[in-house]
Design a binder for these strands. Sequence first.
DNA 1: TTAAATACTTAGTAAATCAGTCAGGAATAG
DNA 2: CTATTCCTGACTGATTTACTAAGTATTTAA
Lengths: 156, 156
Amino acid sequence: MKLSTKGRYAVTAMMDIALHEKVGPVTLADISQCQGISLSYLEQLFSKLRRNGLVQGVRGPGGGYRLAKPASEISVADIIDAVDEKMDLTKCGGKGNCDGGSKCLTHKLWYDLTCDLHRFLSGITLDQYLNRPHINELVKKQDEQYGRFINRRTAA
Amino acid sequence: MKLSTKGRYAVTAMMDIALHEKVGPVTLADISQCQGISLSYLEQLFSKLRRNGLVQGVRGPGGGYRLAKPASEISVADIIDAVDEKMDLTKCGGKGNCDGGSKCLTHKLWYDLTCDLHRFLSGITLDQYLNRPHINELVKKQDEQYGRFINRRTAA
DNA sequence: TTAAATACTTAGTAAATCAGTCAGGAATAG
DNA sequence: CTATTCCTGACTGATTTACTAAGTATTTAA
Ligand code: FES
Ligand code: FES
């Protein structure tokens, strides 16, 4: 578990997709422009997100990315784990066997805390943020500002 | 809010101090040896922890660091905030005024999530980890292994 | 009073990571 | 066919990490 601006970019982008799920696939170019993230950087991130089974790419005109699972089944922890390398646990290298087979003190202290945190972030799924009162108003505003989905019907 | 190995080091070191609170000040040399963190790196981290009022340094022989507040009043969020620079929120630079005075969509999505996370980590205080069943056994084991506090009485 | 132990400070550094560019290839709709 | 999109890989400057080195300041104990 690790949390950096990289994770922030990924979570933001995933939320953008989730918010437009009903309109159809969302292009990285749109996300790049609206959320202010470099296109090439997004491509790197989505390469990881796709390999981890969180999104599904659709090529060709009218394509883009869509969620590979319902928003209710994608947690923030999933996204961060997919994008950020897990930080290593020094001494034992994640094996947890410094102390003759069992976890040593250092390991256990951090391990316990990380588990708590991971459990917390696993409980936060994308859909929890989609239907908040103020959000949908902002989405509409932003879409208009950037002229997104102007000739797009509600997708199949 | 940001979470990296740097934060891990700080939290681990703080827990080491908290675990020996009754024995007296803990030296960075001891922490360095037992938790496997470079001494000079610890000095940098504790410089920040001290400036943020989380620990109190005691100079001279028999000195070390002790908590500046009760363990129940020091949260993991406090430690991480003290040590890790807060990550910036790109476009607006934390001001939250992209959108004509109010927070834009990008900002709001991340802001809401960060608040949830921060609230969670603020609720986790050091003392919650001190009295877990397995921990005290491990502390004793480690102290013996490194010969810590062999001629030290319970401090005033 | 001296010596040792500790906190504290600053400067420097190799390696890693971040965030991005660039250049192209592959699939698909019209 | 052509434009649009995903997709991949190589490369890069800037920053951060984690650490080393070298000192100074303060306190205790002999
Ligand atoms: S650091 Fe993992 S068991 Fe010791
Ligand atoms: S990024 Fe902060 S308000 Fe837009």
